[in-house]
């Protein structure tokens, strides 16, 4: 760091000093810890969403059983596999970049984004099936499903929104990756990976709690 005194520094010099004083490793550690803390806060939000459903599951067993009967587990199981696979593609993409294989990374992350898109399409099909059954978000006193709709849609849609954000992020990672920005420091891929795996972990829990139990 150059010797500077307060007098020599015009106020405009405040702009571009943020990356100058940290080594790449320090910066990477900061970013990783930051992402983990962000994910920690997400755990709490998802737990609120999940608890809304579990309350229903405990109190209105019959309604949930009927919905399971009508819907089956075929579609959602397929969707689960898609998301699990996309998580695997993700980690393989990071591995490829860490080995210096940019083309491989682009292929794997591209597959990840595709997995996310297929998942969202699956969710869309599922939602439209549900709406045919008359399961809607708002409370409907006349419907046999009563509050099932809101308690089901809130957590799954919130998760779907995270998948959507993840797909957008994946495309951004692809764009930057194609420019070679991760060749020397794949931290950007790793951060996205943490997010994407977290979204996968949430789905593992949602799948079990909402569709199976």
């Amino acid at each position: 760091m150059a010797q500077v005194t307060a007098q020599q520094l015009p106020s405009a010099a405040h702009a571009e000093h943020e990356h100058s004083h940290l080594s790449e490793e320090e910066q990477n550690n900061n970013l990783k810890l930051g992402v983990w803390l962000y994910l920690a806060s997400e755990i709490v939000i998802f737990s609120i969403m999940i608890v809304g459903y579990v309350i229903l599951r405990i109190n209105e067993e019959e309604v949930v059983a009927q919905a399971h009967e009508q819907l089956g587990v075929g579609l959602v199981t397929a969707n689960t596999f898609v998301l699990l696979a996309s998580s695997y593609f993700m980690v393989m993409g990071l591995r490829a970049m860490q080995r210096g294989n940019r083309a491989g990374m682009l292929r794997w992350i591209g597959a990840t984004a595709l997995g996310g898109i297929v998942f969202l399409i699956g969710q869309y099909i599922e939602y439209s099936e549900l709406s045919h059954l008359g399961i809607v978000l708002g409370f409907d006193a006349a419907s046999q499903w009563s509050t099932l709709g809101m308690r089901f849609y809130a957590p799954t849609f919130f998760h779907g929104a995270h998948v959507f954000v993840g797909v957008v992020w994946a495309l951004e990672v692809l764009r930057r990756g194609a420019q070679g920005r991760y060749d020397n420091n794949p931290i950007g891929i790793e951060m996205f990976g943490l997010y994407w795996h977290f979204v996968d972990v949430v789905w593992i829990m949602l799948f079990t709690l909402i569709y199976l139990v």
Partner: peptide
């Protein structure tokens, strides 16, 4: 703070989307 975020999300849904998370008359 995420607890607040979760609660506010449900409150907003109750207010604008017709859900009844916090309304006993609607199973909440």
């Amino acid at each position: 703070t995420p607890f607040l975020a979760g609660a506010l999300t449900l409150l907003l849904l109750d207010r604008v989307a017709g859900t009844t998370f916090f309304d006993a008359a609607g199973g909440g």
